[in-house]
Nucleic acid binder design. Structure first.
Length: 423
RNA sequence: GUGAGCGUAGCUCAACUGGUCAGAGCACUGGACUGUGGCUCCAGGGGUUGGGGGUUCAAGUCCCCUCGCUCACCCCA
């Protein structure tokens, strides 16, 4: 046998019935996000490499070793997007969307690419549903976004989720905290793991969410960011919590919640699942009040999030709450000649919006009924010698065996019947 | 990049310490039932046991290499 071709490592097919779950989740997100005034935008999958380097940060793992970067034929450095926010901000600035009344709210969905070692809940091509709100710094919009996420996740029936929030401060207050933290860590640096000693130089805040028990122990009374917030950040965070309380949205404060991307400021949040698997973050997001300026736009605060589709799909699949439907009709023609009548009926019914299938072979009624049953059809129509002679079609409802007849050209009532309406 | 585990039919998996072990279930196709499905029974197709090399009288089983998959670390959705 020839060697079979397979998708590249970390790239996967989504095939039925799984596709049905994807569609369900996307449909619900579209519906609910719309209720909150978010409009869909579609941005390219490829950007100039600089878009990501300047937003995500030069010294992050994503930029340093995870990007699919290549030169096009004219020698430009392009990159398959590793995340969505940078592209959306670029789009916002390029199209002058800041001239529209604030807030401007957008959502997007599509594949992201990172060259990582695949594992459970992590792929090289993975899908995100993301949303971004521009032009408003009021904490109300942070709360609104968390509320929207809450609606969405409970709408698709998920439980076992925790929402954690934090504020990582702004340009004014974070440096002070960073310094205090480094001073604290330095005093006992030998007690930390190798990774943490490395983190100390690169991103000391990361030490706080190390999983090694001894590190957790050693950093247990480290200074917390929330004690170092400036008045503005502190007030913003306090107000956000008030809004969440008022909307009865559950959350936990996690002063150790750090985001990996450089552009975050102020509010950050993460929604994690309690289900097994080490990739437990299903949603993550926060504020990025300076990024629009960095991209050459005006001063425009913003806040957004990204949902990991594969992780969500896995949780929804585990719950077995989405059922795959079957066709409304399975048409059986008992010989090739009757098929000429059959396909005419099929065309009409499909055009009227119904999912209809037909048996292709000239096999026995028995075997075709078996096919109809396995396809999960609601009704079977039979065209055979008796029916053609009498100018009518025989229908059978598979769930209860109820049978009857309709004129061969009475498409309207056929459609009603299949739709389970009264005829 | 680091570490561990695993590759047998389309899918899920059997085959005692190397000795008819190349099998079962599901799925698919057909039949029993010639115009009535779901249940049951029967039959059929489909695998050079991921690939290569080695040890042995004998390898799916042991050793080496390679490719692939999975999980974890790093990091992240």
């Amino acid at each position: 046998m020839k060697e079979r071709l397979r998708a590249p490592k970390g790239f996967q097919d989504v095939i039925p019935p799984k596709t049905f779950i994807w569609q369900h989740i996307e449909d619900r997100a579209r519906k609910i996000f719309k209720n909150y005034g978010f409009h869909e935008i579609r941005v390219p999958v490829v950007e100039h490499t600089d878009v990501f380097v300047r937003s995500i940060g030069e010294n992050t793992d994503i930029v340093e070793k995870e990007m699919y970067t290549f030169n096009d034929r004219a020698g430009r450095s392009l990159t398959l997007r590793p995340e969505g926010t940078a592209s959306v901000v670029r789009c916002y600035v390029q199209n002058g969307l800041y001239t529209m009344p604030a807030p401007q709210r957008y959502f997007y969905t599509g594949p992201m690419f990172r060259y990582e070692r695949p594992q459970k809940g992590r792929f090289r091509q993975f899908y995100q549903i993301g949303a971004e709100a521009f032009g408003v710094d009021a904490p109300y919009i942070d709360a609104e976004i968390l509320c929207m996420l809450n609606d969405f996740l409970s709408d698709i029936g998920l439980d076992g989720l925790n929402c954690e929030i934090n504020s990582i401060g702004c340009n004014k207050c974070r440096p002070g905290y960073r310094q205090a933290l480094k001073a604290y860590l330095l005093s006992g640096l030998d007690g930390y793991c190798e990774d943490c000693r490395r983190r100390y130089d690169i991103n000391p805040l990361r030490v706080l969410d190390c999983k090694v028990p001894s590190c957790i122990e050693a950093s247990s009374d480290a200074p917390v960011i929330t004690d170092y917030l400036c008045d503005d950040c502190s007030a913003h965070f306090r107000k956000l919590r008030k809004y969440l309380d008022s909307m009865e949205i559950k959350y936990e404060l996690n002063p150790r919640l750090v985001r990996g991307l450089d552009y975050y400021t102020g509010t950050t949040f993460e929604i994690t699942t309690v289900h097994p698997g080490s990739q437990n973050a299903v949603v993550a997001g926060g504020r990025y009040d300076k990024l629009v300026e960095e991209f050459g736009g005006p001063s425009a605060p913003a806040v957004g999030f990204a949902i990991g589709m594969e992780r969500l799909v896995e949780l929804v699949s585990d719950m077995d709450i989405v059922k795959e439907p079957g066709p409304g009709l399975f048409l059986i023609c008992l010989n090739e000649e009757y098929r000429l009548t059959g396909i005419r009926i099929l065309r009409k019914l499909r055009f009227s919006g119904l999912w209809c299938e037909m048996g292709f072979g000239a096999s026995s009624l028995r075997s075709q009924l078996k096919k109809a049953d396995r396809a999960g059809a609601r009704y079977v129509f039979i065209i055979g010698e008796d029916e053609i002679k009498a100018g009518r079609i025989k229908y059978r409802r598979l769930s209860n065996g109820e049978e009857g007849y309709l004129p061969l050209d009475d498409y309207e009532n056929m459609a009603r019947l299949i739709s389970d309406e009264r005829i």
